[in-house]
């Protein structure tokens, strides 16, 4: 009897402990998510407070929306390039910096700096660097890679890649730190055994380091995918909110914002886009997770 009461008390206590966060999450995440799903089936006018049920009309409309298709394509391209590059770079840098090279502490600190800067400030700095009169153009001209200046910020072939470079540069250090943290714990006898067997540095990297870091890689890939698919701030600042030039920097998140708060007054359609974005993220994340699990079997 006493034990039962005690257990009940513990049970109650546990729930009380999590209650504040459950309530906050419930209101600001769960309710918000449900409301967005609800909105995506409606035509909404927030000013007149009208919600008209339109069924799947918003989803059908999406298929005809070239701008939205462009945004989805931009976002997927962006994500594919950035996630691949940032994961590989982070891994290689971590491998190099966890070996016993001289000054590795200094390198680690210096490389970590971009992560500490706000992305708004970073974007402005990159826009200065890639300006047609800016340092990048000057450098490329000096070493004769370019014969004439490229307007990286206006030429639609270069705008998205510039944002990619910016994003990779600012996210790699964070993931690199995660990898280093795991590598520090790695038993050195694995490498020693490999050396005795005659493995070279490259073999050690691919046969020992990469498989050892697989759980971290899963995390890096997932957060990378989610982060890049939701990219908003850099494109917003870069294009002054328009997604231009010529929709070349338009991402799904930016388009959601434009539809929701622009004169289109299309909160319902914006919600539909947000739902689609969530579905894309969910699908890709599940696939990545699945692939990683399968490989862990052997």
């Amino acid at each position: 009897m006493f034990r039962l009461k005690r257990r009940k008390q513990e049970w109650l206590q546990g729930y009380l402990f999590v209650a504040p966060s459950i309530i906050i999450l419930g209101i600001f995440i769960c309710l918000a998510v449900l409301f967005v799903i609800y909105l995506s089936f409606h035509r909404v006018n927030l000013f007149q407070n009208t919600y008209e049920f339109v069924g799947l009309e918003n989803f059908i409309r999406l298929r005809l929306d070239h701008t939205a298709m462009r945004a989805i394509r931009n976002t997927l391209t962006f994500s594919a390039v950035v996630v691949t590059a940032q994961t590989m770079l982070a891994l290689i840098l971590a491998y190099v910096l966890s070996s016993n090279i001289r000054g590795r502490k200094l390198f680690r600190s210096v490389l970590f700096l971009p992560t500490l800067t706000s992305s708004a400030a970073l974007t402005l700095i990159f826009m200065f660097m890639f300006n047609i009169q800016g340092p990048v153009n000057n450098m490329l001209l000096d070493v004769d890679i370019l014969s004439e200046r490229i307007n990286f910020l206006q030429n639609t072939r270069f705008t998205l890649p510039v944002i990619m470079v910016m994003n990779i540069w600012s996210t790699v250090p964070f993931y690199m730190t995660l990898y280093i943290a795991s590598l520090v714990d790695m038993p050195s006898n694995l490498y020693e055994a490999a050396s005795i067997d005659g493995a070279n540095v490259v073999q050690k990297f691919f046969r020992i380091t990469v498989p050892y870091l697989r759980p971290i890689t899963t995390f890096v890939l997932l957060t990378g995918i989610i982060g890049t698919l939701q990219m908003f701030d850099q494109a917003y600042i870069f294009s002054d909110g328009s997604g231009g030039p010529a929709n070349s920097t338009l991402t799904i998140a930016l388009l959601v914002y434009r539809y929701a708060f622009g004169p289109q007054n299309a909160m319902g359609y914006a919600a539909t886009l947000a739902v689609i974005l969530a579905l894309i993220i969910l699908t890709i994340s599940l696939i990545v997770n699945r692939i990683n699990k399968e490989e862990r079997v052997y």
Partner: peptide, 20 residues
């Protein structure tokens, strides 16, 4: 709808003046 029309104007006519 001026801001919508202006956005698309800026987007596509830029391609025209850039010769794309």
């Amino acid at each position: 709808y001026s801001s919508i029309i202006n956005d698309e104007y800026m987007n596509f006519l830029l391609e025209a003046v850039q010769g794309n």
